[in-house]
Design a protein around this nucleic acid. Structure first.
Length: 569
RNA sequence: GCGCCCGUAGCUCAGUUGGAUAGAGUGCCUGGCUUCGAACCAGGAUGUCGGGAGUUCGAGUCUUCCCGGGCGCACCA
């Protein structure tokens, strides 16, 4: 790639000039000696501000340093090199070099944009919604984000495993099971703190028709006024009195809701390679379980103490705002310990990096999970969190309330049925993840330029439409004048692998959405001003080359965002 | 009270390890279809980058203090 060659040359020259002037450059400064993609195409293809940065070490004016560097520059791919402003160096690549690069893009085809600069195994955990109900709109954002980030990382060489952590144990699942049993067998119960909604009623009915009546009458006895105590009493009652029904109902409910979730994800083409069950972490009594192994690891590190009968982890030593309980007074593990156990299991599976994608409301977990991870991890491993903010839906200019009545809400599936999966993905990915989304449902439905999703798709459709009539012929010559004229679109195409790498490292799929919008606009403009299919074979062929490359790049970008490109609209 | 995130054009948002005149879309004004799909294009107007102070050749970007908004602060999950 041409930028790499330029940078190498630049560094050589700077080193040489530095040696001549008896100037020593440290690594940090030398790393800043490089060209960047020019922010304004009229100024050149690539620019560097390194002379401004080097001025102090050289004790010279930036402009003077630039003059020396430029006088040493000798590269035939460069058409022009200029010093501008206080000492910026701007470089123009020759049309010949560009046309050679463009032909190379066609040869590389779908792999254009793919780089192998990085390697290593990454475990990416995302969604991990509790199997107590269907996915809501916010989970959808996490799901869409996870897929795009996985694709971006794979694109630069990482091996990514996508994982869903299933909370199939613990109190919430007990409440779910109670809720289903209550719906199935208890008439006129007062729902309070239990799970509600059509799906629970349906699960209750289906369970009853499958399992049959209970062999004894249900009698909870007197129930406490406190909601949590009451819920636990009900759970304990079912569990002990109707243990078979309890086990069956639990298994049934979790598996049914899980398949509901899987179906929702499937319709968005979101695929996790691995589903990890919390229940597989085992118990603290079993000293071979992940749960005990993690507890032992923290203890062996010397970070635990006993207080009030409970076992605590000194997470404050790792920047947490308070210490955390691992084992309760009654020797039951806390939810935190199961998370620690899960991370112990992850660590033992020997990945190089771990990325957890969480809703921003979970940001409080980061210090305590990082603490546990740092104690248990192997040397080369690291953990990273990506947070995403809420999604607010707007319809007819008004904020759409997510929950109308208790248990009933506008789910991700409802939204998909309204709009289709792809426009949702595009809108979810358009904003950076730490910014809340105001999702305009009317705009998402609009089929015009106002809707960036349609605007971008339309550019792709236009490419397909032209290429269906004729296609680029590598044997026919390229008109270099065309290459000069279509400056912007070509420079974007040539730098495509670089920007993909940057977006992957920044974990910013939103930048790719903005690239697609921008690239589409550039193509629409090109299309209006340059008829592709003309009498002149060489002109046509040059423009067909540009059209083919545009199609290729849009297709690949849509693929990374997990959005299906439309060949016809 | 403490912690995390956000604040950029009327609105929705970008802004590349600090770099050149702060950008898109939308909305508003003007023009363009006998022509590869006008679901489009060309042009015009639009800013106290929430506010103050600091760091330096240079700050929307870094530091700090305020203001405003969102979220989180369990032996719940």
């Amino acid at each position: 790639m041409i930028l790499i060659e330029l940078n190498q040359l630049l560094k050589e020259i700077v080193n040489k000039v530095a040696a001549e002037n008896n100037v020593k450059l440290d690594k940090k400064l030398l790393a800043q000696v490089e060209f960047e993609i020019s922010s304004e195409s009229a100024r050149g293809d690539y620019a560097t501000s390194c002379c401004l940065k080097l001025a102090k070490q050289f004790n010279k004016k930036p402009f003077e340093i630039a003059e020396v560097i430029v006088s040493n520059f000798n590269e035939k791919k460069i058409a022009d090199i200029k010093i501008e402003g206080p000492g910026f160096i701007n470089v123009f690549i020759s049309a010949e070099a560009k046309s050679a690069l463009l032909k190379d893009i066609i040869i590389q085809g779908d792999s254009w944009g793919l780089t192998k600069d990085f390697s290593g195994k990454i475990l990416l955990e995302f969604v991990s919604s509790n199997p107590t109900g269907p996915l809501h709109v916010g989970h959808g954002r996490g799901a869409v984000l996870g897929m795009a980030i996985a694709n971006l990382l794979e694109n630069i060489g990482y091996e990514v495993t996508k994982e869903y952590y299933v909370n199939d144990a613990g109190r919430q699942i007990s409440i779910l099971t109670s809720s289903v049993l209550l719906n199935a067998y208890v008439k006129n119960f007062e729902p309070d703190g239990t799970y509600e909604g059509e799906y629970i009623k349906e699960l209750g009915e289906r369970f009853k028709s499958m399992f049959g009546e209970l062999d004894e009458k249900i009698d909870f006895g007197p129930l406490d006024e406190d909601k949590d105590i009451r819920l636990d009493t009900i759970s304990v009652y079912f569990k002990s009195k109707f243990s078979v029904a309890w086990q069956e109902a639990k298994k049934f409910s979790v598996s049914q809701i899980l398949s509901l979730i899987k179906e929702d994800l499937h319709k968005f083409n979101i695929v996790h390679e691995h589903w990890f069950n919390e229940s597989s972490l085992g118990t603290v009594e079993d000293n071979k379980s992940d749960l005990s192994k993690s507890l032992i690891a923290i203890k062996d590190g010397g970070y635990t103490y006993s207080k009030d009968g409970a076992e605590w982890f000194k997470t404050t030593e790792f920047g947490d705002d308070k210490d955390r309980v691992l084992l309760r007074e009654n020797k039951e593990p806390t939810y935190y310990l199961t998370d620690v156990g899960y991370h112990k299991n992850k660590i033992d599976r020997n990945f190089d990096s771990y990325i957890n994608i969480f809703g921003a409301d979970h940001h409080g977990y980061i210090p305590r999970l990082t603490a546990a991870f740092d104690v248990m991890k192997k040397e080369h491993q690291n953990l990273e969190f990506l947070l995403y903010q809420l999604v607010n839906l707007y319809e007819d200019g008004f904020k759409k309330t997510m929950s109308t009545r208790r248990g009933e809400y506008f789910s991700l599936n409802d939204l998909r049925k309204d709009l289709g999966p792809d426009v949702i993905k595009f809108f979810f990915l358009e904003k950076k993840s730490d910014h809340p989304i105001d999702f305009d449902m009317d705009l998402a439905k609009d089929e015009s330029k106002n809707n960036p999703y349609f605007y971008a798709q339309y550019a792709y459709v236009r490419c397909c439409s032209i290429l269906a009539k004729s296609s680029f012929n590598p044997e026919t010559d390229i008109d270099l004048k065309e290459i000069e004229n279509c400056y912007e679109i070509i420079s974007k195409a040539i730098n495509y692998p670089l920007i993909l790498k940057e977006y992957a490292l920044e974990r910013s799929p939103h930048s790719l959405v903005h690239f697609i919008k921008d690239f589409s606009a550039t193509f629409h403009s090109f299309y209006e001003q340059n008829p592709v299919l003309t009498e002149n074979k060489i002109t046509s062929n040059s423009r067909l080359l540009i059209t083919s490359i545009t199609k290729l790049i849009l297709k690949n970008s849509f693929r990374i965002l997990n959005v299906k490109p439309l060949e016809k609209m």
